[in-house]
């Protein structure tokens, strides 16, 4: 009982950390969209003070720093909590990795403030943010009661396997976020990012079709595919609108409200798209056996049958 409560506690804490990371991503996007990244020229203090004057762009930059500090503390607590209570070695390692990533991210943020070079440092900062987000979301999933309970082992006779397709999709989305970050911070043009959007759309459709064709009755995978498709669809619409706002804002004197809202929403939904694809991929790896484990069946096992078989064996 105590063990179950402890596990639930760690899971809730990991989930809260992931939610705070989403807020941190939004705060970071607000800094970029409001052109406020250099509004505080020093680090870790702000104008040699713990709390700087609350004016103009400083509000965005300082809020971002506060959220970053909060997420770093939460991640440190989570890593220690997992290290002390978790029996799975890989999870303990992932906890420490997340902590290392958030500290590296703070270092990159400091480099961005103190050394400039936005095309390089800000792009790297934005990419590492997504890597850290992946780590925290994965931790929350691995700590969830769903992941830790006995699940049916499904078989996938199709080629390529759903596990491969979903993994490719997540990789493509991650690459697309890199291209997006590069465009946003001046390292790339828009063309690679537009090409990436087409690739993401193709892979997302492929993944959901594969789920529908082979695992129609597996609720978790079906829901995962719906979330992924919804996120990709919304993201493409937002991408078009955000690009329009960027073009319109090129000759603007200052960041406009529409530009800020659309670009921040695009960054946010981008992160959520990655998260939804990652969760689907991990779920596939958790529920579906490897291709070479398939015996002679050429059809996927119905989840209900698998569940019933699981219960019977238990």
């Amino acid at each position: 009982m105590a063990e179950a409560m402890r596990r639930a506690g760690v899971y809730k804490f990991a989930f809260a950390t992931a939610c705070c990371t989403v807020l941190l991503l939004v705060a970071g996007a607000l800094v970029t969209s409001n052109d406020a990244a250099d509004s505080v020229p020093d680090w870790p203090l702000a104008y040699n003070r713990i709390i700087p004057p609350w004016v103009g762009g400083i509000r965005y930059e300082f809020t971002h720093r506060v959220f970053a500090g909060l997420v770093a503390v939460l991640t440190a607590i989570l890593a220690v909590w997992i290290a002390r209570s978790e029996t799975r070695r890989s999870i303990r390692r992932l906890g420490w990795t997340a902590l290392a990533l958030v500290l590296a991210q703070a270092g990159l943020g400091a480099l961005r403030v103190l050394k400039g070079h936005p095309a390089l440092t800000a792009t790297a900062h934005a990419i590492l943010a997504q890597v850290f987000f992946i780590a925290v979301v994965s931790l929350a999933l691995f700590m969830s009661p769903w992941w830790q309970r006995e699940l049916p082992s499904l078989k996938d006779s199709g080629s390529p396997s759903l596990r491969s397709v979903s993994l490719w999709t997540t990789s493509i989305i991650f690459l697309q976020l890199i291209l997006g970050a590069g465009f946003r911070h001046g390292a790339f043009g828009i063309i690679p990012h537009m090409g990436g959007a087409a690739a993401v759309l193709f892979f997302a459709i492929w993944t959901s079709r594969t789920v529908r064709k082979r695992f129609k009755t597996v609720r978790e995978l079906r829901k995962g595919a719906i979330y992924l498709n919804s996120a990709v669809g919304l993201q493409i619409l937002l991408g078009g609108a955000a690009y329009g706002a960027i073009v319109a804002a090129r000759t603007a004197v200052q960041p406009t409200f529409v530009y800020v809202v659309l670009t921040v929403a695009h960054v946010l939904v981008g992160a959520l798209t990655l998260a939804s694809s990652l969760l689907l991929t991990l779920s596939c790896f958790r529920m579906i056996g490897p291709s070479d484990a398939i015996e002679t069946s050429s059809h996927a096992v119905d989840a209900r049958t698998a569940r019933a078989a699981g219960k019977a064996s238990a």
Binding site: R88, Q148, R149, L151, R163, L167, S171, P290, S291
Partner: peptide, 25 residues
């Protein structure tokens, strides 16, 4: 059950092709 390292270890062969694609990307 629930150990990601084992889940992924079981997946080794399935991942091989994905890994190649990932490295290319």
């Amino acid at each position: 059950e629930g150990d990601p390292s084992i889940v992924f270890a079981r997946a080794k062969s399935g991942i091989r092709s994905s890994r190649r694609t990932t490295i290319t990307l």
